[in-house]
Computed example of a mutant assay.
Amino acid sequence: MIVITNPIAIENEINTIHALFECGLELLHVRKPNYSVGELRLFLSKVNPEFRSRLVLHQQHQVANEFGIHRIHFTESARAALDLESTNNNDGFIKSTSIHTMADFNQLDGCFEYAFLSPIYQSISKPDYKSDLDAVKAIAQRTNYNSKLVALGGISIENIAKTYQLGFNDVALLGSIWNSNQPIQNFKLCQKIVHLY
């Protein structure tokens, strides 16, 4: 199970991040699209060094080594601009990416460990962001088994089990953590369900 940061700073964010890791969070995607390099450095410097190897950077990849981060994520546009020949697996980074169609997932280069397919359900963090994706149909069209398929968008306690049953390899949480008054309790409830799969 993966958690993605809220795009903007929120109260008690670093304490919540530490608590999530202490509860067993495997990976935290740091997605702060409007942060400058300096703001991102400040944010990362507050994360306990023992947890930094479990961070995945969405932006400002150039600061990854400075913080002992070995995972980087590419948006669709960043992936399109990526020279896979020169970066493939020679840079030492574990890569992930975002996609919005199964056709794009099926054509992914093998250097991507996993990809977020979104939105699966109506978004929790963006109420106007509805899903047009037919997940059952999309899963039936899957031909890429080199990369893991991670469900994103509207993932909650109510639908995690269904999501795994559809055939997704993993889930990513955003709104169900950061839009909650009880983010840690929500995480633990989701974690219990995930452990059944």
Rank of each mutant, 00 (worst) to 15 (best):
M1C: 04
V3P: 00
I4H: 02
N6T: 01
I8F: 14
I8D: 06
I10D: 00
E11M: 11
A19T: 06
L20D: 01
L20K: 04
L25Q: 03
E26Y: 13
L27V: 06
L28G: 00
K32R: 12
P33R: 06
S36W: 13
E39V: 02
L44K: 05
K46D: 09
N48P: 04
P49K: 10
E50H: 09
E50P: 02
R52Y: 15
R54N: 12
Q59V: 09
Q59F: 15
Q59I: 08
Q60A: 08
V63H: 02
A64T: 08
N65F: 06
G68L: 13
F74H: 11
E76S: 13
E76R: 12
R79T: 05
D83V: 04
D83K: 11
S86N: 10
T87H: 09
T87C: 11
N88A: 03
N88V: 03
N89M: 10
S96H: 05
T97F: 07
S98G: 08
T101C: 07
A103M: 10
D104H: 11
F105I: 01
Q107T: 12
D109C: 04
F112D: 01
E113R: 14
E113A: 15
E113H: 12
F116R: 00
S118E: 07
S118V: 02
S123D: 10
I124M: 01
S125M: 13
K126G: 00
K126A: 01
D128G: 14
D128E: 15
Y129M: 12
S131P: 10
L133T: 10
D134W: 09
D134L: 06
A135K: 06
V136A: 12
K137H: 11
A138F: 06
R142C: 04
T143H: 09
N144T: 09
Y145V: 14
Y145N: 08
N146R: 13
V150A: 01
A151T: 03
G154Q: 04
I157L: 15
E158C: 07
A161D: 11
K162D: 09
K162N: 14
Y164D: 05
Y164M: 07
Q165Y: 10
F168D: 02
N169E: 14
V171N: 03
V171Y: 01
A172F: 04
W178L: 01
N179D: 14
N181R: 13
P183Q: 07
I184V: 13
F187M: 04
F187I: 05
K188A: 15
C190F: 04
I193Y: 07
I193D: 05
H195C: 08
L196C: 13
Y197S: 13
